[in-house]
């Protein structure tokens, strides 16, 4: 899932300090799971903003809401009758949600309330780590289910490199060497012979090479 972290409160305060009617819009999707932008976080941020405006002696209307997903028009449409009541919206969705809301409500100021980080897993509560870079052509079948694009700092296809030291990456000793992980996993699976055949250069045309990407599924479209 997409992982995000809440923006520092002072940054959000700076964005909204000149408004008097602000809606905090959470998203019940990915950002709820990583506790960065769900209903709970929307309530906390709204409460903090109310305290800020009240102590400054200013009348302000700060409300919170959370949508099922902000990356879908149907859910964003639930705000259509509410938008006029606010000067600005702080969206706690990932970058996709913020942009889609801005697209849909063209004349409304939409600010991001979280910093979107990566596609990752929940190792434990409060500990998330990257697993996928959405390159558009999955090679996990060849690499023992461990992605060299996301897990190797150099995105090498024929690793490990000379910087691998006792299973750790030279970039940071806290980062395991992706290729060491691949080697160990393939050894467990009895598939070490895969190392005997070099992997061809990756086709990056499905990645960011051609600019913003689009999926068209004619079998699904109505």
């Amino acid at each position: 899932m997409i992982k995000a972290v809440p923006k520092p409160l002072e940054e959000v305060l700076d964005l909204v300090k000149d408004f008097t009617k602000v809606l905090i819009a959470g998203c019940d999707g990915c950002v709820t799971v990583c506790e960065a932008g769900g209903l709970k976080e929307a309530k906390v941020l709204a409460s903090a903003l109310r305290l800020y405006f009240t102590q400054a002696g200013r009348q302000a209307q700060i409300d919170e809401i959370s949508l099922t997903r902000q990356c879908e028009k149907e859910y964003l449409a639930q705000l259509s009758d509410k938008m006029d009541a606010y000067d600005a919206v702080v969206s706690l969705a990932c970058g996709c949600g913020v942009q889609y809301m801005a697209e849909m409500y063209n004349n409304k100021i939409i600010y991001p309330g979280v910093d979107t980080c990566f596609l990752g897993v929940n190792e434990e509560r409060g500990l998330y780590s990257e697993r996928c870079q959405a390159c558009g052509r999955c090679i996990l079948a060849e690499t023992g289910g461990i992605c060299p694009i996301a897990r190797c700092s150099k995105r090498m296809l024929n690793g490990p490199c000379g910087g691998s030291d006792a299973g750790r990456c030279e970039i940071n000793k806290d980062i395991p060497c992706g290729w060491e992980l691949i080697y160990e996993r393939l050894k467990t699976l009895g598939q070490l012979d895969r190392f005997e055949k070099p992997v061809d250069p990756k086709d990056w045309t499905t990645s960011r090479d051609g600019g913003p990407r689009k999926i068209v599924r004619e079998d699904l479209r109505i």
Binding site: L9, E10, L13, V44, A48, L49, L51, Y52, Q55
Partner: peptide, 9 residues
């Protein structure tokens, strides 16, 4: 406590 400091309470 951090939030209260930042919002001026």
């Amino acid at each position: 406590k951090e939030i209260l400091d930042k919002v001026g309470v």
